[in-house]
Design a protein around this nucleic acid. Structure first.
Length: 565
RNA sequence: GCGCCUAUAGCUCAAUUGGAUAGAGCGUCGGGCUUCGAACCCGAAGGUUGGGGGUUCGAGACCCUCUAGGCGCGCCA
């Protein structure tokens, strides 16, 4: 369902489209679609430019080789006739058309928020995209989640929420890399800790995982199995210890994510793909479609046929499938489950993988169905000192540690309030120090402040609150601060849809900050509970609407909207 | 060597995807509570958007080039 607000804007834009068509030269009107640019109204950045503006005359001028200002003037000349809720339309150099809306248009927005509540801003803008599956985190089950995974999990979970809000059917998933040599290394590293604890000092293997967390895993193993693995058969031991460590570590990852308010609709195990024969089946499919070939005893994917720079090995000459073969089976499975569009969020060290994944999905018969996003690098430092993030090096900063030190709300906001492709510097010392004045509190404070006003209103002006809830006096709104605030409220749905479309959740974080700022200045200049009952009711309506939208925006970010702070 | 990402105020980052005078937070300086929450508001200082060239009515954004940083380039995962 579309906002009345959006519907009106669309109507205005369409009416302007018609006017523009009347101005077009015959060649353009008779010709192709691109002969006449479409009118797009965007909120004006500067209040002096009215409420909305369109540069369409500038675009048309370029195509038609005419003076842009003349076209803009011609568009404005017909006045507000046929333009619903438009109070004024004017041309401005070098060729903008500025539109100012009526007061009732804006007060109507407040009433609409009150009516639709948490549904306000929802749209069907991206409905045609889905069903879409967003895969992120996809960690190795060899240790605790680290800070970078905090970033991609915050990003991914918010993106899914925004896609749904914008009408797309979206699901979240993570892939557990629990196959291959790394699980053996994990098992051997666990065994070293295990044996050492049982009085047989054993060094962690050179290529193993030296992190202290495996000591805890070893303790749990002793508690369950005692000493039975000390002298067990090496192969059996590897299998058992690898599985034990994986299960425990994955469970801890799940708990950390849960605490970080990230919950996946599904978890997929790589090992399962090997065991179920899914990999073999997918390889058969690729073979049948002719996108693979054999050379030097190995099986190759003809990735170059789909834009990759070289072909890639799927099955080694010794018969073992590569990681890419598992990914082929995995992505084939995603498509088989009915997802029309796939989004993978990978870490920055995997960007070299993008081309071959795209080639893979194309070879599976779904070219263009995959979109790979890169959650860019997080550089860690503690004051001036650089911090290593390598699991191998042993020192690592875990997601859990960050949550404990700065809190979930501050950490999530910190990650989301940056564009995904920015390389961000995470200064642990600064993060802890600044967690108290993290911008997220600015937004939350706005929400709590409104809650406080509402409590007061409920206590002393009960009937007024009811009146406000019904939006009975919203026509009284007209103060510059009020209109400025309403303009921000109105833009919520468009903002979320464009954030989801551009895979840029940080825009919603920016929006929340801007909305809160609009409220704080309104609050400073306008007394809500005053002498004039009608005005008080109207302003209470505005407070209620603002609180609703603040809560919605924070909800999309996975941040709480507190009643008290 | 090739490819991808990045470079914007002292620091951390935005900029409605090519639009009007590049904006926030933190930090600095100066104001504002007798009244609904001062975790707030108002103001000031702070910029050759890494350098150079180009595209056009218009470029932080697009193209070329140079510089600097990060990452990747395996029959590893």
């Amino acid at each position: 369902m579309e906002d009345r607000y959006q519907a009106l804007l669309t109507a205005v834009a369409q009416a302007l489209d018609q006017r523009l068509q009347g101005l077009a030269p015959a060649s353009a009107a008779a010709g192709t679609h691109d002969g006449i640019p479409r009118v797009v109204l965007t909120p004006a950045r500067d209040a002096r430019h009215g409420d909305f503006a369109t540069p369409v005359a500038l675009a048309a001028a370029k195509i038609w080789k005419r003076n842009p200002l003349e076209i803009a003037r011609a568009l404005a000349e017909a006045g507000t006739q046929g333009l619903p809720e438009v109070a004024r339309i004017e041309a401005a150099p070098p060729g903008f058309v500025n539109v100012t809306m009526t007061g009732s248009f804006w007060s109507g927005v407040v009433r609409e928020v009150l009516e639709r509540g948490e549904d306000f801003g929802k749209s069907t803008a991206l409905a045609s995209l889905g069903p879409v599956l967003v895969e992120f985190v996809s960690a190795n089950p060899t240790g605790p989640l680290v800070v970078v995974q905090g970033r991609s999990s915050a990003l991914g979970s918010s993106l899914v929420a925004m896609l749904r809000f914008a009408g797309a059917e979206a699901a979240s998933e993570t892939y557990v890399n629990d196959a291959g040599a790394q699980l053996d290394r994990l098992a051997d590293s666990l065994f070293a800790r295990y044996a050492t604890l049982l009085g047989r000092p054993t060094p962690v293997p050179e290529d193993g995982y030296p992190g202290e967390y495996l000591v805890d895993v070893a303790r749990a193993l002793i508690q369950r199995d005692g000493e039975r693995w000390l002298d067990a058969d090496a192969n059996e031991r590897r299998r058992a210890l690898g599985r034990f460590a994986r299960d425990l570590i994955v469970e801890q990852q799940r708990q950390d994510l849960e605490r970080f308010r990230v919950r996946f609709d599904t978890w997929v195990s790589e090992a399962t793909l090997h065991e179920s024969g899914a990999i073999a089946r997918t390889l058969e499919q690729l073979r049948a479609s002719g996108h693979v070939y054999e050379q030097d005893g190995a099986l190759w994917l003809r990735a170059t046929a789909f834009g990759d720079e070289k072909d890639r090995v799927l099955v080694r000459s010794d018969g073992r499938p590569t990681y890419l073969a598992a990914d082929a089976a995995y992505h084939a499975d995603k498509l088989r489950r009915g997802y029309r569009y796939l989004i993978d969020i990978l870490g920055p060290d995997h960007h070299g993988y993008i081309a071959r994944l795209n080639a893979l999905v194309a070879a599976l018969g779904h070219p263009g169905a995959l979109e790979v996003l890169i959650a860019q690098h997080v550089t860690l430092k503690r004051g001036e000192e650089k911090v290593s993030m390598s699991k191998r090096a042993g020192e690592l900063v875990t997601l859990r540690e960050v949550i404990e030190q700065v809190g979930v709300d501050a950490a999530r906001f910190y990650f989301i309030n940056r564009s995904p492709e920015s390389h961000l510097v995470f200064d642990l010392a600064l993060a802890v120090e600044q967690s108290a004045n993290n911008p997220v509190y600015y937004v939350q404070y706005g929400h709590a402040r409104i809650a406080s006003i509402l409590r007061k209103a409920a206590a002393s002006h009960g009937s007024l609150l009811e009146r406000a809830q019904a939006g009975r006096d919203v026509e009284r709104l007209g103060h510059a601060r009020e209109i400025a605030l309403i303009r921000r409220l109105a833009d919520f749905g468009r903002t979320v849809a464009s954030a989801a479309q551009a895979r840029a959740p940080h825009r919603v974080a920016e929006y929340a900050l801007d909305l809160a700022a609009g409220f704080h200045t309104f609050y400073t200049d306008c007394v809500v509970l005053g002498e004039d009952e009608g005005l008080s009711s109207a302003r209470l309506s505005l407070c209620l609407a603002t609180k609703t939208v603040l809560a919605s925006a924070l909800g999309l970010l996975g941040v709480t909207a507190p009643e008290h702070m």
